[in-house]
Every structure is written in structure tokens, then in C-alpha cells.
């Protein structure tokens, strides 16, 4: 049975009932029965996986690094939604442009985290960075599923290949970093912070790759994945950290806390901390990753960072980090406070 068959990971009682349902074909009933029998083992496996992840996290917090650099793998789903797909041999020299780009940019993200923040992969223990490409048919999305990255090819109308924006790759891998650090919930203010942190590090990664200062960056997210139909209608990006409510954004966002939507989509409310980050980066000047990046990273990885953390709690952590990381430069602290105040936090 394929891993994405609907008879997988559903309650055993339902599988048992479906296995007895005479209105279903015999093959379907047999498959449900077989899956029901596997369910106990599967549950045990998932339990063990959870324990292993917790133990892993505990070791990471102890500051032990077990590997020098993460392995980078790319697998090809060939248009299916079965994961992980077929491994791509030597993806860095693949004739498949998507595989090659995915490998090169994922490797660069790992180097970005190591060079700028001393972090070894998303878990700081050298976890293999696995990506699956060509996921689904004309699939309009990219995401982190808790263990790996998944990229669709886009429908070639609204979106093109999701590996074409390296900030998208940086964004999604940062969801992995967040998972292994603050573990921010994916709803309300923590959810908006979760999305914002991914945008901030995705944008910084793109600037780092281009050697750009904050003042010369465009601060757009996803500008490389906009398809011809969306472009024809005037859209140039998913989001704009400099101008979150601009009409050229596929997703217009609030930029001030007074516009926060309770219970809203994390992708929308993330505009508020995104804009604070932009204002602070511009206020400080220079290269974003060397100053504000270190502050945001310290806040995200602080032992005081909690999954339920809201904007104000994160603001306090960033202000504290600005003071401790740049004790001789009060202007940095002042810009951090000023930036958050400007967005109403």
C-alpha cells in the first residue's frame, strides 16, 4: 500500500469497520485490514521517534555537536505525492536544473547558518537536510514537514518551480531551525512569529548570497517564483517586508499591531514583526546578518524562548540580545526598541 493511501494513519477502529464493510471492493477491504494490523507497530514506531527527537533536542541544548556539516540529499517525486521519492544521485551535478539548484541552495543555507550563527544544520547536530522535488502535479507550494523539505513545480501560471527563489529555501529550512529551538506554535502570535522568523532568515540568506547591504536589498519574499499570469496582474512577490501592504504582494499583510487579526493566518500577521525587522535592519545599516541577524538568532535560540511566545515576549528577548551582544553600541539597542515601537509592539 502506498504511504499516501487514505487507509494509512487512521484510527484502527475505522480501519476495522472499513475492512468489514461489504459495500467496498474486496481489495480495499483487504488493504484496510492489513493496515489495521500494522497500526500498533506504527504507533510504537512513532512513539519511539518522538522520544528520539526529544533526546536529540536535549543533547543539542547541551551544546554537543556530533557532525561537522550536514549531508544534503535530494529526491525526485516525479509528480507523485509519495515521499520521499527516488534519490537523485550526485544532485550537485544533475542535469535536472531543479535538483541541482535545490542541492546548491540547500548547501548554501547550511553554510549560511554555520558561518553567520555557528549552527550546524537545523538541529545543531548536523541533521541531514533532505529535500523532495517535483512533488505533485503542478503543485503550488513548498513546505517543511517536520523532517524534510518538499517543493512543487508550480502550475506555471501563478507560480513557477518553488526552488527558483533561494529565500524560499532559506524560509522553509528556518521552519526546521524554529522547530528545534523555540518550537513556536503555529497559530496566533506565536504562529505569526514562526512565519516571520522564516521570512527574516530567508531574506537574510538571499542578501548574504548576493553580498548585499540592507539598504540595497529589495526585501521581497518569493520574487523568483511568481508565474506569468500573476506577473501580468502586477504581482511581483509573495510578501514585501519593506511595504507589507503593497498591492504588488500576493499576500498583503498588516504592518502595525493595530491591524493584527486575532486568529488570523500566520502568513498575514507575520507582516508586523517582518516590518519591525526591516525597520531595525535599515536603522542599523550594513549587512543584516552581522547585526540584527545575530540578535534575532539569539532571541530564537534563547532558553527563555517558549512555544507560546507572543510579539512582546520576542521583542524583550531581542532587546536583551541587542544589549548583551553589542554592549559597546547603544545605537543598536536603540534601533531595536525604536523598530518594535514603530509597529506598535
Amino acid at each position: 500500500m502506498a504511504t499516501r493511501s487514505g487507509c494509512f494513519i487512521v484510527p484502527k477502529s475505522v480501519l476495522d469497520r472499513l475492512a468489514r464493510d461489504a459495500s467496498l471492493k474486496q481489495a480495499t477491504r483487504t488493504a484496510c485490514r492489513a493496515t489495521a494490523q500494522m497500526e500498533v507497530s506504527w504507533r510504537e514506531l512513532r512513539g519511539a521517534h518522538g522520544l528520539a527527537a526529544q533526546a536529540h533536542l536535549g543533547t543539542a541544548l547541551a551544546g554537543v555537536s556530533l557532525a561537522g556539516a550536514p549531508a544534503i540529499t535530494v529526491a525526485n517525486c516525479h509528480g507523485s505525492t509519495s515521499l520521499p521519492g527516488t534519490p537523485v544521485p550526485n544532485p550537485g551535478s544533475s542535469t535536472d536544473a531543479t535538483a541541482k539548484r535545490c542541492f546548491i541552495e540547500t548547501t548554501a543555507v547550511a553554510r549560511f547558518y554555520k558561518t553567520c550563527f555557528g549552527r550546524n544544520s537545523v538541529d545543531n547536530l548536523g541533521m541531514t537536510l533532505a529535500s523532495s522535488i517535483h512533488y505533485g502535479h503542478a503543485y503550488n507550494n513548498a513546505f517543511w514537514n517536520g523532517t524534510q523539505m518538499i517543493y512543487g513545480d508550480g502550475d506555471q501560471q501563478i507560480f513557477v518551480d518553488f526552488t527558483r527563489s533561494n529565500d524560499v529555501i532559506g524560509h522553509e529550512l528556518t521552519h526546521g531551525v524554529t522547530q528545534f529551538t523555540a518550537g513556536l506554535d503555529y497559530a496566533d502570535e506565536p504562529g505569526a512569529l514562526n512565519e516571520s522568523v522564516s521570512d527574516c532568515f530567508g531574506a537574510m540568506f538571499r542578501q548574504w548570497r548576493a553580498g548585499q547591504a540592507a539598504s540595497t536589498a529589495d526585501w521581497l519574499i518569493g520574487s523568483g517564483i511568481i508565474g506569468p499570469l500573476a506577473a501580468k496582474k502586477g504581482y511581483t512577490c509573495l510578501r514585501d517586508m519593506a511595504n507589507p501592504g503593497a498591492s504588488h504582494c500576493l499576500s498583503k499583510q498588516p504592518s502595525h499591531y493595530s491591524q493584527y487579526v486575532p486568529g488570523g493566518d500566520p502568513h498575514d500577521n507575520s507582516g508586523i514583526p517582518n516590518h519591525a525587522f526591516y525597520l531595525i535592519a535599515m536603522g542599523i545599516g550594513g549587512r543584516s546578518w552581522s547585526t540584527i541577524g545575530r540578535i534575532w538568532y539569539a532571541a530564537l535560540t534563547s532558553p527563555s524562548a517558549k512555544p507560546s511566545m507572543g510579539f512582546k515576549a520576542f521583542k524583550k528577548l531581542t532587546a536583551a540580545a541587542a544589549k548583551s551582544l553589542f554592549p559597546g553600541n547603544s545605537a543598536v539597542y536603540a534601533e531595536v526598541v525604536k523598530g518594535w515601537k514603530a509597529v506598535g509592539v
Partner: peptide
């Protein structure tokens, strides 16, 4: 409803 980097409704 939500999820992934795509903010559009589908």
C-alpha cells in the same frame, strides 16, 4: 486553508 509558503486560497 493554510500551510506551506503559498499564501493564496485554493
Amino acid at each position: 486553508k493554510r500551510g506551506g509558503i503559498n499564501p493564496l486560497k485554493g
